[in-house]
């Protein structure tokens, strides 16, 4: 089994076998990160460009470190405001970057589909590091890896995803991945933040957190974009937190071995109390470690193969 694709754009279009391969390879890469010398020569001479149109410290850092541990050269470009004010189109920006002979472009962009757009326009490998409200496949894969390590199997596992599903690319990637592995996926949030038609994917939708948490095996909390307040999705953050914030009482409704996950950065006291975020159930820091391994695996697996 090899990864016969140029790009990683979404979990929705990954085959189950490809996900197996990525997770298995990532597990092997975790050992590399435990070594004294954490650098291997696999991608020596390759160039990775992190093209970020949205500010992000942790995802960019994780991709950067992953590439560096594989001996690739990394350039970070924050294209955010500068290119838009100069009216350069995304196509022009990316063709200019490709002209630097890069082998990979890791792109984060505020528009859904931006990674697809680049992938079809460019010869180099494109890794989607989050496009609009579409997908964030490396985050989805690292979440899967974390659950797999802790639970072994996904079959029948009750996973509850809480919060702003509508605007969450993390939720989208998680849902696709979890469903492919046979997990029992539950979504909780206000109806204003649940996308239309999502029940058809085979998930269960709840509006009440307590009801959804009953004997949950995994709780994935989503970050609430604070600027959603005042756009009639919910009245106030205070009320949102009351309805959908995870605290110790609510956690006690879940299975005693329940994992608490969050893609970060956390709004403490809004999505989750500090007590729970730092508690024994929390695997939030393991997610970060696994993120590095998954991203190394993606770079490595995309490196091979003659691309016609």
């Amino acid at each position: 089994m090899t990864l016969k694709r140029k790009d990683i754009l979404s979990i929705a279009d990954l085959e189950r076998e490809e996900m197996d391969l990525i997770l298995h390879t990532a597990e092997s890469f975790k050992e590399v990160s435990m070594r004294d010398i954490k650098k291997v020569p696999a991608l020596r001479g390759k160039t990775v460009i992190n093209l970020f149109f949205e500010p992000s410290t942790r995802t960019r850092t994780s991709f950067e470190l992953a590439a560096k541990r594989l001996s690739a050269d990394v350039i970070n470009i924050s294209a955010g405001a500068s290119s838009t004010t100069k009216h350069e189109t995304l196509l022009d920006t990316s063709k200019n970057i490709q002209a630097l002979q890069s082998d990979y472009i890791v792109v984060r962009h505020h528009s859904s589909g931006a990674a697809h757009f680049l992938a079809s326009a460019l010869h180099c490998s494109v890794i989607n590091a989050g496009d609009g409200t579409h997908e964030h496949p490396s985050q989805g894969l690292l979440d899967l890896l974390t659950i797999k390590e802790k639970r072994g199997d996904f079959k029948g596992l009750k996973v509850v995803i809480v919060g702003d599903i509508l605007h969450s690319r993390v939720a989208n990637s998680d849902i696709h991945g979890l469903l492919k592995y046979g997990a029992d996926v539950h979504l909780v949030g206000p109806p204003t933040l649940i996308p239309r038609g999502i029940e058809k994917w085979g998930v269960t939708v709840h509006y009440h957190l307590d009801e959804a948490l009953a004997s949950a095996d995994v709780i994935i909390l989503l970050r609430l974009q604070l600027e959603r307040q005042g756009k009639s999705f919910f009245p106030t953050i205070r009320e949102y937190s009351k309805l959908y914030g995870l605290n110790r009482r609510r956690l006690s409704l879940a299975d005693p071995k329940c994992l608490v996950m969050h893609p970060g950065p956390i709004n403490r006291g809004i999505e989750v109390t500090s007590e729970v975020a730092d508690g024994l159930s929390s695997v939030i820091l393991e997610q970060v470690t696994n993120g590095l391994a998954v991203r190394m695996a993606l770079f490595f697996l995309l490196s091979g193969g003659s691309r016609e």
Partner: peptide, 11 residues
């Protein structure tokens, strides 16, 4: 140069 990436296993 290989046509496919070899599988990576744990050291």
């Amino acid at each position: 140069t290989r046509s496919a990436t070899p599988a990576l296993e744990t050291t």
